[in-house]
Amino acid sequence: MYAQMVKSTGQGVKSRDEMSAEERDFQDKVDADIRIEPRDWMPEGYKKTLIRQIGQHAHSEIVGQLPEGNWITRAPTLERKMILLAKVQDEAGHGLYLYCAAETLGVTRDEMTEMLLSGKMKYSSIFNYPTLTWADIGAVGWLVDGAAIMNQVPLQRTSYGPYARAMVRICKEESFHQRQGYDIMMRMARGSEAQKRMAQDALNRFWYPSLMMFGPSDANSVHSEQSMAWKIKINTNDELRQKFVDQTVPQAEYLGLSVPDENLKWNEEKGGYDFSEPDWDEFFDVLRGAGPGNTQRLTDRQKAWEDGAWVREGLMAHAEKKAARKVAAE
């Protein structure tokens, strides 16, 4: 999802006999849905996996500001401009909440930022796709936020307290994001011929990348098995993808748009749609940073970080001077 293919210890899940007494106590708490808090004992692997996952999630929010921010200055009405700005601002807020959650595990926001900028930490593949037309802003809200919500709602129950609490706040704020996207799509699907074409084109380009957001099938992944035992991952990627497709197809039909998949068919037996897998080679290429999108996003983030250094340092220096003057006066 926003955190795709997060590696855990890679060891597979330990049996109770293999666990130390501390590990057993820890696992009992997780199993009993008792939240783990920052100062509680936790396995090193749990901590490391969480930092990776929350970090990747936070980076995705921050990098995710860019494709949508791309249209703030071109939004077609004052109201759309305000809505989009408020939405992209929310993404910054969500990144902030998540960085703070990760900081409770002993890593600083600056350290995580450096890891993003050096390419050591990843962000979701979806944000490497360009937003070419205004309809893309509708499609991103409808599909990308729709897919994100699928994953984030269950994470409100995740075992790590600060992460779960950040997700509660995020889910509450996100509730308007998907709706504003669908609202844009409705307006366009009922609009002029050009607008309808634009809307269909956006769906065509964002459909498969949205399906990729859930990550490749992880039915047999040791990482996912461990993360699920620790309750930092709640559903398998395939479960969520299926749920997303089942929810989204009727919404596309309502818009009068067609999902770009000739194999899409209702399957009465499983009570869900059959659908084509996205091109996973493309996914791995994009995740690894191929294509202009990745370079552009990282260059933008690096520039913002480097250009802002003097501001961060300047304000800190002033705060220190002020504190020193106060001490001197006392």
């Binding site: 921050i62 921010g69 992209v88 601002q89 910054a92 902030l96 933008d300 520039k303 802002g308 961060r312």
Partner: peptide, 16 residues
């Protein structure tokens, strides 16, 4: 125009 490009997240949010 600053949205997504400010020196620090807190400032990004404030400018918005």
């Amino acid at each position: 125009e600053w949205c997504g490009h400010a020196p620090v997240l807190e400032e990004d949010i404030a400018l918005a």
